[in-house]
Design a protein around this nucleic acid. Structure first.
Length: 308
DNA sequence: AAGACGTGGGG
DNA sequence: TCCCCAAGTCT
């Protein structure tokens, strides 16, 4: 029986006994051990939550912290960000990585300003329609900022469920329908409790049930963990998808954009040529940045971060 | 639906 | 050192 089959078979048999036994311990643990993160404070508001979610996509908390503080101080409301050129968002993004997220956050702020009266929407479908907001982020903002009842499935939660419920060391490479079904089946009925559960399971995955070396000794549900009960078997399925970087266009794009972020004036071609010696790849990377709207070519042959 | 998309820290 | 990994989204 594969992991997917096992998850698929669960929900009906699962219901109350298992889920009810998990909610209390996990939420109690969260009450005692949750980190005091700025976007979890009441004053963060929905905009603060949304900004944090964009920054946290594939980026560790420790690196997000300082940029988040600067960002919220400079642009306390969506309209403040929307009033500036997208290039300023890219510049302020600094070295967080995946700078297209900065562009999308700027575009989302613009949409919020023009379509939603400057208020981050609370409706899941409206959130999902915003640039850069996918299934996870829409659920996260609706749940964390507005206390709604949604299955919030990020990499942490998926790993916790894979282990505790499905008995696998790691979840599948891509989120499956079976995982969504399981997440919904485990969601507490009460709206506020469900929102708490979402944050708690995520935190458990981030602090205790980690990818490499889980600290089962500190896990509130270790006694009910299917993976532990099975003897903590090693991952068997297809290899987990790695990320290549060295020598790729991504690395070249990063170097090019770093130059433009630092520059206050448009940058001449020669300055960009200096970051990478292979001309074909260099040109392809620059073209890609322009196509993505991260870089603006000017008529005189210079380049800058986008003004419009 | 597999692959592109940045960056840096920890084991 | 090198490899793995980090609150995903989009095409």
């Amino acid at each position: 029986m594969t992991v997917t089959d096992r998850i698929t078979a669960l929900p009906e048999a699962l219901s109350e006994p298992l889920s009810g036994a998990l909610h209390g311990p996990v939420i109690d643990w969260f009450d005692a051990h949750a980190r005091d993160l700025p976007w979890r404070r009441p004053e963060a508001g929905a905009w603060g939550v949304m900004v944090s979610e964009f920054m946290l996509q594939q980026t560790p908390v420790s690196r997000v912290l300082p940029v988040y503080e600067q960002w919220l101080a400079r642009w306390p409301r969506p309209a403040d960000l929307a009033a500036e050129p997208p290039g300023e968002a890219v510049r302020a993004w600094g070295r967080l990585g995946y700078p297209r997220r900065a562009l999308r956050l700027h575009a989302a702020a613009t949409a919020i300003t023009e379509l939603h009266g400057g208020e981050v929407p609370s409706d899941h479908a409206k959130l999902l329609a915003l640039p850069g907001v996918g299934e996870y982020t829409a659920a996260a903002v609706a749940s964390f900022a507005y206390g709604q009842r949604h299955a919030v499935l990020d990499t942490n939660v998926r790993r916790v469920f894979a282990r505790a419920v499905s008995g696998a060391q790691y979840p599948p490479n891509a989120t499956t329908a079976a995982e969504r079904k399981l997440a919904r089946a485990l969601l507490p009925e009460s709206e506020p409790v469900a929102a708490r559960w979402a944050a708690a399971t995520m935190e458990l995955g981030a602090l205790v049930c980690t990818a490499r070396t889980p600290d089962c000794g500190r896990c509130p549900i270790a006694g009910r963990c299917a993976w532990r009960a099975a003897g903590s078997p090693a991952h068997d399925g297809p290899p987990r998808r790695g990320q290549t970087y060295a020598g790729t266009d991504r690395q070249v794009r990063g170097k090019l954009l770093a130059v433009l972020r630092e520059a206050l004036e448009p940058v001449p071609q020669v300055a960009l040529d200096a970051v990478w010696d292979e001309p074909v790849q260099r040109a392809r990377a620059l073209d890609g940045l322009v196509a993505d709207g991260l870089v603006e070519p000017l008529a005189d042959g210079t380049y800058r971060l986008p003004l419009g």
